[in-house]
Design a protein around this nucleic acid. Structure first.
Lengths: 117, 117
DNA sequence: CTGTATCCAAACCGATACTG
DNA sequence: CAGTATCGGTTTGGATACAG
């Protein structure tokens, strides 16, 4: 084994600027939607899974863990039977909401233009 | 050839909601940054390439084409020698700026928290 | 200068099966 | 219910070389 060299070490870009920092957090598949749904209030795992329709458990779990690591969501496991886990936005997470809403707002414009084209 | 079946037909998620519609536009690598830099005014290809430091020409071209297709940037080729091409935000593109700025704003908060952790 | 073509490694994500 | 493990296909994006 000749000690595999990593030539593409920079998967995502200007990691230090605030713009990219935030995009790194909300950029993954479904991530922005997760935050959006959590913005309406606490939500259980299976509820989120239902909200996001065809998302796989694997990806949803991954996204929630990432958001947790970023400090924007909090995970509360309840020792019930069957077990249930509730996710909520942290204070920091709620600061994402204005951005998400701004994105939704332009989204409408973009969709309108895409429909026209 | 047994007629290749596509089992993973949904690379990205809820394609119809405004949130995902917008994320699809600004979600690619560097894309948000491109819009950000164009927000300051018209910019030539090589200028953008310099702004975005280590981006490859291949990706930058791709992003600009996508943004053009989405109707958010306009491309103006000048028949000079050597040739130069100027990119500007369209009216629709400028509507992205509030969202970008909101993202930048949270980005600062996220960075602060990441630095603390 | 402004790209395009090709190649390739890495990341991403869905499907499925399985666990506590 | 709330995940985890593994697999495999897709997509992404960098490097490099080349073109108008």
């Amino acid at each position: 084994m000749p000690l595999k060299v990593r030539k593409n070490r920079a998967p995502q870009p200007p990691d230090t600027c605030p713009l990219s920092a935030c995009m790194a957090v909300i950029g993954g598949a479904w991530t922005a939607n997760v935050v959006w749904y959590l913005g309406a209030g606490p939500r259980r795992f299976s509820e989120l899974k239902g909200d996001l329709a065809p998302v796989s458990a694997r990806v949803l779990t991954r996204r929630l863990r990432e958001l947790e690591d970023a400090g924007v969501v909090q995970r509360h496991a309840m020792a019930t039977s069957p077990p249930s886990v509730e996710y909520t936005l942290s204070e920091l997470g709620r600061e994402l909401l204005p951005a998400i809403e701004a994105i939704v707002a332009v989204g409408h414009r973009l969709k309108a233009r895409a429909a026209a084209a």
